[in-house]
């Protein structure tokens, strides 16, 4: 078990009568990339802002490397923060933006210039130093914001939905870039996101939150393969709930449902109700005679091989090694989360 670097001990927060965070406990080892993941309003941004010092908690303690920072002002926390709206100063050039915080430190002009050049090179923007934010694309602005945050050589980096304003292609690229920078600098990083794909691809550890509470903490594979609750299973990836009435409840991911043309042991009969093309695979909706619909992801070449089409009778099997069990299941209506 690696040693805890950033520790959140019973931090809680209310806004008037609204509870933004129930007492939260999280321990984050050094150099980790942690994603706070959850639907909007779950409290993830509030938690990040509490760590940054932009909100004051109602109770609890935050420590970094054993140092209690709970009541320190934001500037004394040695945190690099990147904001959703980029928060670049529109009236300052790229280099002035990056130097803004450095000028508060006891650094010579030459040192500041050197640092600015260094971080600009890190994000590939050496030639844009004299530009104003409005002269740059969204992706470039985001990279400037990232460079500005790491220029301060912070103890840890806080990213508030850094990619949500960008289009898909740029987002893809910046994901890798942020991840690369993280590995290069080894900086403990906490990122807020509502995009589960972003969390799965980027994080070392995912903290899934809902309704002001932490629901599950774990590595991406762990969260995906062994969700501890219906909520997590449902929120991350698509899932079939196959035994809601049973406790513990049973679920299975659509890619694990196997389909046969002939009956096999433990298989059930169903009619193909719908086929939805998704590029490399198809998502098939199966209608068994006695239970509710099941979705299955089958790759496109398999579809052709088996000659699957609408209204065809097939046999499906739910391999027991892929069944997910959890105890909190309530008999709620079956919900499909389309990814």
């Amino acid at each position: 078990m690696p040693q805890t670097y950033l520790s959140i001990e019973g931090i809680r927060k209310t806004f008037g009568s609204f509870t933004a965070l129930e007492p939260i406990h999280i321990e984050i080892p050094k150099n980790e990339f942690v994603c706070l993941l959850g639907p909007s309003g779950c409290g993830k941004t509030t938690l990040l802002r509490l760590i940054a010092g932009l909100e004051t908690p109602d109770g609890g303690r935050i420590t970094v490397a054993g140092r209690d920072i709970t009541s320190l002002p934001p500037s004394k926390r040695q945190a690099g923060m990147m904001f959703q709206s980029y928060a670049l100063f529109p009236n300052l050039t790229v280099e002035q933006n990056i130097a803004y915080g450095l000028q508060e430190k006891k650094m010579s002009k030459a040192q500041i210039r050197g640092k600015v050049e260094e971080v600009l090179a890190m994000v590939d923007l050496e030639h844009s130093a004299k530009k104003y934010p409005s002269q740059m694309s969204g992706g470039q602005q985001q990279r400037v914001a990232l460079a500005r945050a790491v220029a301060m050589s912070p103890d840890f980096l806080l990213l508030d939905e850094p990619l949500s304003a960008l289009d898909a292609k740029v987002r893809q690229k910046l994901r890798q870039e942020i991840r690369r920078l993280h590995e290069q600098l080894g900086m403990t990083t906490i990122m807020v996101t509502h995009d589960q794909e972003e969390a799965l691809t980027m994080a070392d550890t995912i903290v899934v939150m809902n309704n002001a509470k932490v629901i599950q903490v774990g590595m991406p594979e762990e969260i995906y393969e062994r969700p501890n609750s219906k909520f997590v299973a449902d929120f991350i990836g698509a899932v079939n709930f196959v035994g809601v009435e049973e406790v513990p409840a049973v679920a299975i991911r659509p890619e694990h449902v196997s389909i046969h043309l002939q009956p096999v042991p433990d298989s059930s009969e169903a009619i193909i109700e719908n086929l939805e093309f998704r590029g490399s695979s198809y998502r098939i909706t199966l209608k068994p005679s006695h239970s509710r619909e099941i979705i299955a992801d089958v790759n496109s070449s398999m579809i052709r091989l088996l000659g699957l089409e609408k209204n065809r009778r097939v046999y499906y099997e739910l391999p027991s090694e892929h069944l997910i069990y959890f105890g909190d299941a309530l008999p709620t209506p079956w919900v499909e989360v389309v990814v």
Binding site: P74, K76, G80, M81, A87, F89, N91, L92, G101
Partner: peptide, 25 residues
């Protein structure tokens, strides 16, 4: 944009500096 004020605060700018670099522009 309140984010600008927060960004300046996290970078350690004083109230006075924030006034002249964020509010006035």
């Amino acid at each position: 944009d309140y984010n600008l004020y927060e960004a300046a605060t996290t970078m350690g700018a004083s109230k006075r500096r924030i006034f002249f670099t964020v509010t006035v522009p």
